[in-house]
Design a protein around this nucleic acid. Structure first.
Lengths: 227, 227
DNA sequence: TCCATACTTCGTTCGCCGCCGAAGTATGCC
DNA sequence: GGCATACTTCGGCGGCGAACGAAGTATGGA
């Protein structure tokens, strides 16, 4: 009996189309039930149940039981990062002819990437923050400047608390559709939750798409995009 | 016929134990021939040939033909990063009881991680550079300081040239055996090649292990580890 | 020219695993 | 209690694909 975890075991779990679909569905960040994921992957609940048991055994996902429902989530951002890497690598194939990313224009424009925003809007956001000296990029790494610290504090962000988390504050994340970096990390996560709380954007019920309201677009643009 | 690359296709390639072994063998950074990899994975050459064709089709590896030999390598550091992530995730399983990393003490101490150094020595290296103000870490991101720039220039590193490459200069890379970060990126790669060129370390012929010579240990310690 | 070596292609076997139907357990609502 | 819903377990079917033997194609050296 093999005790040591083999790299092929983990990869094989993601190598099944149904399981992969289920995992990508979880990339949306929402906790999903077993039946929801079964629908997502076009399989019966009992098949999904088997898959979920395997994913749990390898600790790629976590469960929370709530009455007769079981809510599944990705096991931390490490697993999410693995999925992102896979998405980018699989999109890279034959990059001369194949259009990258989703076809849905709404999803191209703005979608959830585990816990932060992705899509054209989010690439524009990163560009703007860099252009205004709120963020700097040094040898491929993002960092908050002193001016940026003040700026975010003025917007009500508790940077000290965010910094204490065991994850980078700012992080580049390669955008699946845009092929450019957008802002991830604790700060990226904060911005998304802030947008949701302020109701500038609204999550689609059954996809990763997020929709900007009319006033949300205006306010987002004024706050984050205009110099 | 599916044109768009599916994430499960890539994962499935790494999901086969034989193929996974072949890919991990390439993590050593050396180009290998088909038969060498067949030996590594305990399969016959014709089976390996089939695997390699599939890996090539998905552009996870590259070939270079040289006479009757074919030399295979990983297709860039993106693929290497994917393998690293998988290694770490699979080692994470049952972390309460399972010893992580390799059993070979030499390999624990120093080994090659695609193009840079890994193992206890390399973790010590990063700690020392941070402690001496040559590198700084800001919200999980490594960066070279002004003092560090001067220090590396004094050691003959052409930082300008290194910075021009489309990859981060300094990068944290989670160490498989140590579970702590070591130094990766263009600078990490430069240090390894410098150690090899100066003959302070020598690569093992058929593993990822690198061995420090007696004088190499002394000089490495004096140069990089002592304040 | 002849042989050895490196790699590939083809055909066959065989085991694993994803899948569903049917039946079983837990939970909540009326 | 009775019924619906969510999830699980079991058993058997079916197909994909990894593996090797055998034979075929390049390359290099004697």
């Amino acid at each position: 009996m093999v005790v040591q975890g083999e790299i092929s075991d983990v990869a094989a779990l993601l190598g099944d189309p149904a399981r992969a679909k289920m995992m990508v569905a979880l990339l949306g960040g929402k906790a999903l039930t077993a039946t929801e994921m079964a629908l997502e992957a076009d399989i019966t609940p009992q098949t999904a149940s088997g898959h979920l048991a395997k994913l749990l055994a390898r600790q790629l996902i976590t469960v929370q039981k709530q009455g007769r429902h079981k809510y599944f989530q990705l096991h931390g951002s490490e697993v999410a990062a693995l999925l992102e890497t896979l998405l980018n690598l699989s999109a890279n194939i034959d990059h001369s002819t194949v259009k990258t990313g989703p076809k849905d224009p709404g999803m191209r424009q703005a979608r959830v990437c585990y816990d932060h925003l992705a899509g054209t809007q989010s690439v524009a956001l990163r560009d703007s923050l860099l252009g205004r000296g709120i963020l700097v990029e040094e040898s491929g790494q993002l960092a908050l400047t002193g001016a940026g610290l003040a700026w975010f504090k003025g917007r009500g962000v508790d940077i000290e608390t965010l910094s204490k988390k065991p994850r980078p504050l700012c992080k580049n994340c390669l955008d699946w559709s845009e092929r450019r970096h957008h802002l991830a990390g604790a700060l990226g996560a904060w911005i998304l939750s802030d947008l949701l709380e302020k109701k500038w954007v609204e999550r689609d019920l059954d996809s990763r798409t997020v929709r900007f309201s009319d006033s949300g677009t205006r306010q987002f643009s004024k706050t984050y995009l205009e110099a």
